[in-house]
């Protein structure tokens, strides 16, 4: 569950949004409308105003690292700080690489040799290690081909059926219709619910 009350950041907001457990909300909008800015604000990566709440409590009462473990954000471009892939995982041997069709020896690879699609899938698996309550996904399948998009969505659906709420920013209306329960459009800093998914 995730509830945003009067969330404001730069020209975005006030945004009010409420997701139930296992609910998926898709957000679309023109480039530069602030979809990523909104996700960053929910993840508390930039200064912002307003209240946020999950089943674990209010954001204001939660230390920022704990908040980000519960409300996990997958940026459009992932970041890597060590040389090898395995160093970015808490338990590299227990990651279900096969679910996203990643070679079993990938944990020993250098990050530099990963393709953009591999980076994206590994960054998603890295995030799932946190066992989050909420997933904030910023165009997660943009660098993926159709097959890998299908695998990604299948893995995401397992999370959703386990009760994880998802905010999905996407440019693909068909994907929004396929996964999301509700559909919002962000334009001129305001979030408005679209009539139908």
């Amino acid at each position: 569950m995730l509830e945003a009350i009067n969330l404001t950041r730069l020209h975005i907001g006030p945004v009010n949004l409420c997701l139930a457990d296992g609910e998926v909300v898709a957000i679309t909008g023109p480039s530069g409308s602030g979809k990523s800015v909104l996700l960053r604000a929910i993840a508390d990566l930039d200064p912002n105003e307003g209240q946020l709440k999950t089943q674990s409590g209010m954001r204001a009462d939660t230390p920022a690292p704990d908040w980000r473990r519960k409300v996990a954000y997958l940026p459009a471009e992932s970041g890597w700080w060590a040389d090898s892939v395995g160093e970015h995982f808490k338990a590299p041997n227990q990651v279900d690489l096969a679910s996203l069709a990643i070679a079993p020896e990938a944990m020993g690879w250098d990050v530099a040799r990963l393709s953009s699609g591999e980076r994206q899938r590994l960054a998603f698996l890295r995030l799932l290690e946190l066992n989050p309550d909420v997933l904030l996904l910023d165009e997660p399948t943009a660098p993926l081909d159709a097959e890998n998009t299908a695998r990604f969505e299948a893995r995401l659906k397992r999370c959703i059926s386990a009760g994880v709420s998802v905010v999905l920013v996407t440019h693909d209306p068909v994907q929004a219709a396929r996964i999301a329960d509700r559909h919002f459009v962000l334009a001129d800093g305001q979030l408005a619910e679209a009539a139908h998914v």
Partner: peptide
């Protein structure tokens, strides 16, 4: 220069 790498760690719960 390393903003993305640092924020990646913050997003995984590092302080």
């Amino acid at each position: 220069r390393e903003q993305r790498a640092i924020e990646a760690q913050l997003l995984l719960g590092a302080d």
